[in-house]
């Protein structure tokens, strides 16, 4: 058990180190921060932003249901973050195995006393840690904005929303890792992952047009539907379970595909 844990740490650290040593990862981080910063500004403070809108409404003396600016902001912002993540995550996951296959280092891993599970889990943890690192600065300025509202909004809602984002990212990364293990071309891995994510994203639309148990079942598979549940501050264990299932499925398929790779290689 201790050996397995030590191996996991070794793989995890190497993976993380490769992100922080790669200029590519910094480009991804830069683009992500730039765009998310822009959206943050546009949604909250921009001329069409939530604050401007509610101020306008007050000025015009519109009565009725007052808008809950902090919650509405969080839900909007997390929505845009998830769309951003959809583009960025396949780029984070594309190299996980494809790169190893291309460089021949998979041969080192496959002939070391490591199980495929440990390698896959270590890599996934490295990738999700990198993504969480991308979120940390955003979390800081959201926390400032949300707590500056009057009355102060609950940070729990914000954190739950971000947990949802991390789970969503975990699911995409896990599936992306599996796709990456199928090819030795990183570009192909990124494109295929993006396609897969897109399908899981819009599966709700397909599900809505279907009636009966198939439609209901498909609805549960939709990433965006489960994600929206969490960003609305609802702690829904079934949504969490869906994401965790995706993560485990990705890990399982990755381990299996690497095992199968040994047998089909020519």
């Amino acid at each position: 058990m201790r050996v397995i844990f030590a191996n996991l740490i070794a793989i995890y650290r190497r993976e993380l180190q490769s992100y922080f040593a790669s200029p590519f990862a910094y480009v991804i981080a830069g683009v992500f921060w730039l765009l998310s910063g822009f959206f943050f500004f546009a949604i909250l403070l921009g001329p069409e932003g939530l604050i401007a809108q509610s101020a306008l409404r007050d000025q015009m003396g519109v009565t009725g249901q007052p808008t809950d600016v902090p919650y509405q902001f969080l839900s909007f912002f997390l929505g845009t973050l998830s769309s951003l993540a959809m583009f960025i995550l396949p780029m984070i996951s594309m190299g996980l195995y494809a790169e190893e296959r291309k460089r021949g280092t998979l041969e080192l891993l496959a002939t070391s006393p490591l199980t495929n599970w440990v390698v896959a889990l270590g890599k996934w943890l490295g990738a999700i840690t990198f993504f969480i690192t991308l979120l940390l600065p955003l979390l800081l300025y959201q926390a400032i904005a949300v707590s500056a509202s009057d009355p102060p909004a609950s940070l729990t809602v914000m954190l739950l929303g971000h947990l949802g984002l991390v789970l969503l990212a975990g699911a995409i990364l896990s599936l992306g890792m599996f796709v990456s293990s199928l090819t030795d071309s990183t570009i192909l891995a990124a494109i295929l992952t993006f396609g897969l994510v897109l399908v899981l994203w819009v599966i709700e639309l397909v599900a809505n047009s279907l009636v009966g148990p198939v439609g209901d079942g498909l609805k549960h598979l939709s990433l965006i539907k489960n994600y929206n549940t969490l960003t609305q501050g609802i702690f829904d264990s079934s949504s969490i379970l869906v994401f965790v299932s995706y993560i485990l499925l990705g890990l399982f398929l990755t381990a299996q595909s690497i095992e199968a790779f040994r047998f089909q290689r020519s």
């Binding site: 030590a6 190497r14 180190q17 490769s18 460089r103 021949g104 280092t105 080192l108 006393p113």
Partner: peptide
């Protein structure tokens, strides 16, 4: 099989770790 983004020493430490 080399991780080209690692230093020689760092890489050998990694290999030593995964080899137990």
């Amino acid at each position: 099989p080399l991780y080209t983004d690692m230093t020689v020493e760092g890489f050998l430490h990694f290999v030593a770790r995964i080899k137990g």
